[in-house]
């Protein structure tokens, strides 16, 4: 397996990371919430899809659509039921962060009981492969890269061409002022959580279809997304997370190929070094 092949695999992984990372980054940049439970939303999308498709026999598109909707609703619900009440009672960033960890723990335990920790893979057949020279490209990966690029384009349009997008960018710059000029901060907040969670749910569906998910996948994917966001920086969210995710996808692909037992170490050592030297991101 050559290094170009590894690069191709890394690009495939970058797709999942980007979808989770951009939502996490959006929430972190606009609302100052370190949303650990975003990983839970991701894995919930995956499991709803898996159970509907494999257990109840719904077709792929229907189960995917329901799963994304469930993920989106869960994300908004976590914000409304847990984060907002904590903030109303005077809790700050740490309090929300710890509560978010708590939410992730509860759902991890639930999925562990439901699935006994077994890897859940929704697809039953093998995937089509294109051979380009010596490199084998999976059609699924290529389709996903295109899908992710389309979603990022839509996100760009949403953030830069609509009123909600303008409000979100205003929140990023100055929340107090945004509220003062008569913006409906609560409604904007809902749309942020809705869109971010839908994207995480979609990433969950895509992962569950292909590589499979287990109860740990949520936290694992979330922390990779966190590193991607820190790597890219939140100043220029879309380009930053895209670059960060691609870099991280390639790094994890090479680490898995060369030193599989050190993958986690690589990711988190990199995160700590980044926090120390470039907390605003390499490209931020």
């Amino acid at each position: 397996m050559g290094s170009i092949q590894t690069l191709a695999i890394g690009l495939g992984m970058a797709g999942y990371y980007a979808l989770v990372a951009v939502g996490f980054g959006l929430i972190f940049a606009t609302l100052r919430i370190f949303h650990v439970a975003h990983g839970t939303v991701f894995v919930t999308g995956g499991y709803v899809f898996f159970f509907l498709h494999r257990l109840y026999g719904f077709d792929l598109a229907t189960s995917a659509a329901i799963a994304v909707a469930c993920a989106a609703i869960l994300g908004v619900a976590i914000d409304r039921v847990i984060y907002i009440p904590i903030m109303r009672r005077g809790g700050g960033m740490f309090a929300v962060f710890i509560a978010s960890l708590g939410v992730a723990l509860i759902f991890d335990a639930l999925y562990l009981v439901l699935t006994k920790g077994v890897l859940a893979i929704a697809r039953t057949d093998s995937l089509q492969i294109w051979n380009v020279g010596a490199i084998a490209l999976r059609q699924y990966d290529m389709a996903m890269v295109v899908l992710v690029l389309v979603i990022f384009l839509l996100l760009y349009l949403w953030l830069h061409r609509t009123r909600t997008g303008l409000e979100i960018r205003a929140l990023t710059d100055n929340e107090m002022l945004a509220g003062t000029v008569g913006m409906n901060v609560d409604r904007t907040r809902n749309s942020i959580f809705l869109i971010a969670s839908a994207m995480a749910g979609l990433a969950g569906v895509l992962t569950a279809y292909d590589n499979g998910i287990n109860p740990d996948s949520g936290n694992r994917t979330l922390f990779i997304a966190v590193v991607a966001v820190i790597l890219g920086g939140v100043r220029n969210l879309l380009a930053g997370t895209l670059l960060g995710s691609v870099a991280l996808g390639i790094i994890t692909a090479f680490a898995m190929f060369l030193y599989p037992e050190w993958v986690t170490f690589c990711i988190f050592a990199m995160m700590i070094v980044l926090i120390l030297f470039r907390p605003k991101g390499l490209f931020g």
Partner: peptide, 24 residues
């Protein structure tokens, strides 16, 4: 015993949420 570990961690999660909400 297969349920004790998940119940324990779910309980810890719930406690964290409730603590942050009501009694930090």
């Amino acid at each position: 015993s297969t349920l004790t570990a998940p119940i324990q961690s779910a309980l810890y999660g719930l406690l964290l949420v409730l603590l942050m909400m009501f009694r930090r």
